[in-house]
Design a protein around this nucleic acid. Structure first.
Length: 425
RNA sequence: GGAGAGAUGCGAGAGUGGUUGAAUCGGGCGGACUCGAAAUCCGUUGUGCCGGUUUCCGGCACCCAGGGUUCGAAUCCCUGUCUCUCCGCCA
């Protein structure tokens, strides 16, 4: 969430930002509740001060009637404090509920626009892969080569579940090791995180654990949910802590399974592995000082480029527009890989996403660092190293040959142990 | 899942219902001594919120969390969470 004092002092800018993101949130109501809360705190603190004074004056020996008088006075104060506290709690709750609807401010360079078509392409690794035959999509390729079984996935678990099979399994594991090696080289602490997190941690990261719009599976009666990304668990890692950033930012990499409800998502562009309920992802997460986060976002983007360049998959990088930013993001760069089987003639499809969330997540999670004797909220950044399912789409579709076999990117060969998936039958 | 023990500041660790935001030791920081260092000695050292005359001052809250008892709770009661030990189950 945003700093309440900041909202009050910059109400017009906050409103303009909400409008630019095509979101709705009631800034005036937040300010009204904030003022009301502060007035109540001041009042109740004064009552508590009088209670403390009253209690202190009763420590020594007193005449019985004098003591009784003080006790009666204390009883009165006690009631007034209880009333003040319950009113404050009510206002605080209402304030919090309204305030979390206000999105993070956006970087001044973020393109303004409503949908992903307003994203700005800022670079391109290469032109789309050329074929001298009509390329197939990954669903067809995987079916021909017996790599992914969607039908049995649906029977056993429901639609949008799948079994990876045969070489696809080894490809999955190879991509994992490949990415982890690169992240280790860049100084990330490697982790495999829990796949379940407490709901308040997920909420602190900016996910909505409950309700119709939620993309999260909750675990009934436990107060926990399945994670949609390791961003949740890695962001929760230092929740409530004051961390030391004097020796540089903290770089974490986490492998987790990711679970998403994806209610209502369907159609050509979501087919096959592109949008599924469960996949494996390796996520980068960074805790940094405020002044370093812009630079680190570029670094995350560059690591993503390194990973996909290494796979030889053409991609472009887009600067995500205001309407397409998630609420916690201040700026976001996406890598979109060329997917020859996407749409009619092939298309770019999102494979990674790197966001600078500034102090939006850390404020709610209570993660701070010290600087010049003061504590400040850390900046948090997250970026996809590899979302395995989408990377597999790109590998299969770009590596396909006319005879039905698939060339495996050279960088993966040492990890998976084969350089091609041979045509079958 | 069952039984028991515990949770206090940066760490270890005291704590009688009322001068306890918290003894003591250690760590950190500042200083003295020293050519320098060690040792020693002295001082200092939490977080959040509200208000103000805003490099500071005042107030409030915080001893795992949430409730309760009381004029007054780190201290008494209840619930939850987590940790440890033992048993059971399990990969």
């Amino acid at each position: 969430m945003l700093d309440l004092k900041y909202i009050k002092e910059n109400a017009e800018a906050v409103k303009a930002n909400i409008a630019a993101r095509f979101m709705t949130a009631d800034v005036d109501e937040v300010i009204r509740l904030y003022d009301r809360r502060n007035a109540l705190i001041t009042e109740t603190d004064e009552l508590r001060r009088r209670r403390n004074e009253n209690a202190k004056s009763m420590k020594g020996k007193l005449e019985p009637e004098e003591r009784q008088k003080l006790i009666d006075e204390g009883k009165g104060l006690k009631e007034a404090i209880a009333a003040g506290e319950s009113e404050t709690a009510k206002v605080k709750e209402a304030l919090e509920e309204k305030a979390i609807r206000i999105p993070n401010m956006a970087h001044p360079d973020v393109p303004v626009g409503k949908e992903d078509k307003n994203n700005t392409e800022i670079s391109r690794s290469d032109e789309p892969t050329k074929f001298d035959f009509k390329p197939k999509d990954h669903v067809k390729l995987a079916e021909n080569l017996d790599l992914i079984d969607f039908e049995t996935g649906a029977k056993v678990s429901g639609s949008k579940f799948y079994f990876l099979k045969n070489e696809a399994v080894l490809l999955d594991l190879a991509l994992t090791r490949y990415a982890m090696d690169i992240l280790g080289k860049h100084g990330f602490t490697l982790t495999i995180t829990p796949d379940i997190a407490r709901e308040e941690i997920a909420a602190g990261i900016g996910f909505v654990p409950r309700g119709d719009e939620s993309n999260i599976y909750t675990l009934e009666g436990t107060g926990t949910c399945l994670v949609g990304t390791a961003e949740i668990t890695l962001g929760g890692y230092y929740a409530g802590d004051i961390i030391n950033l004097d020796d540089g930012p903290i770089l974490m990499a986490g492998l987790s399974h990711c679970f998403r409800r994806e209610a209502g998502a369907a159609g050509q562009y979501s087919k096959g592995l592109y949008r599924v309920h469960q996949f494996t992802k390796i996520e980068m997460f960074v805790y940094s000082k405020a002044e370093d986060s812009d630079e680190l976002l570029v670094k995350l983007k560059e690591i993503e480029e390194e990973i996909f360049n290494g796979l030889g998959i053409p991609f472009r990088v887009v600067d995500t527009c205001t309407g397409d930013l998630g609420a916690p993001a201040y700026r976001k760069f996406d890598l979109e890989a060329w997917m020859p089987g996407r749409g009619e003639r092939g298309d770019w499809g999102e494979v990674t996403s790197a966001s600078n969330c500034t102090d939006y997540q850390s404020r709610r999670l209570g993660i701070r660092y010290r600087e010049d004797g003061k504590t400040r909220h850390v900046h948090t950044l997250n970026g996809t190293a590899v979302a395995i399912s989408r990377a597999i789409i790109a590998v299969l579709e770009n590596g396909q040959r006319e005879d039905g076999s698939i060339a495996v990117p050279e960088a993966l060969v040492p990890y998976c142990g084969f350089s091609e998936i041979p045509a079958k039958g």
